[in-house]
Amino acid sequence: MTPWLDTLMVLVIFTSLKLLGSSRLGSCIRTAAFQGVLLGFLPIVAHPGSLAPRLLFMAAAAIGLKGVVFPWLLFRALRGARVRREVEPFVGYTSSLLVGLLALIAALWAARHLRVPGRPISPLLVPVALSTMLVGLFLIISRKKALSQVLGYLVFENGIYAFGVGVAYEAPLLVELGVLLDVFVAVFVMGIAIFHIRREFDSIDTTRLETLRY
């Protein structure tokens, strides 16, 4: 257990809570990017002493994508949309924060029952990864703006990434690059979709998408 890793994990929890309690879309994009960068350092911090070039390369790729490319794409999608805030989400900010805390408690409880075999890891890693996933899913269903839903997807993906990197997963480089590429294209395509939603409805409110039923 390293103090660095635990500090990193606590910071990730703070970013999740900030995302839950903040209404400004711009600051949400920055917070999600910061969370991505924090988790980008995870492979280096979680496996100290083994600074393999492959590990460094993956960390650099993740940090570059989540810290630079994604915020740039999302700010570009936001440009032209007159909204700057998430107005009247389905669940208010105070309640959202409470949900975030509940998610953390549930994750801590679940992690006690998940005994990860093999190498010992920080006791915070699994609960933080699980709670990040839950917060991401909650953001997707509780927010109305298309951009907030993409941010929720990113947070969800961050949680899965943390779990994968932290808990002894050694995939071939090809597969890891493929996963990163897929996430990149996902955000890219969602960004384009947001652009079209704004043009079509003059708003990026997904409550306008309600024609198709049954």
């Binding site: 996902a186 395509v189 969602m190 979709a193 939603i197 079509e200 998408l209 024609t211 198709l212």
Partner: peptide
């Protein structure tokens, strides 16, 4: 708008 809605849900 209908195909856009379908695409967004799909994504």
């Amino acid at each position: 708008h209908r195909s856009l809605e379908a695409t967004w849900k799909y994504l």
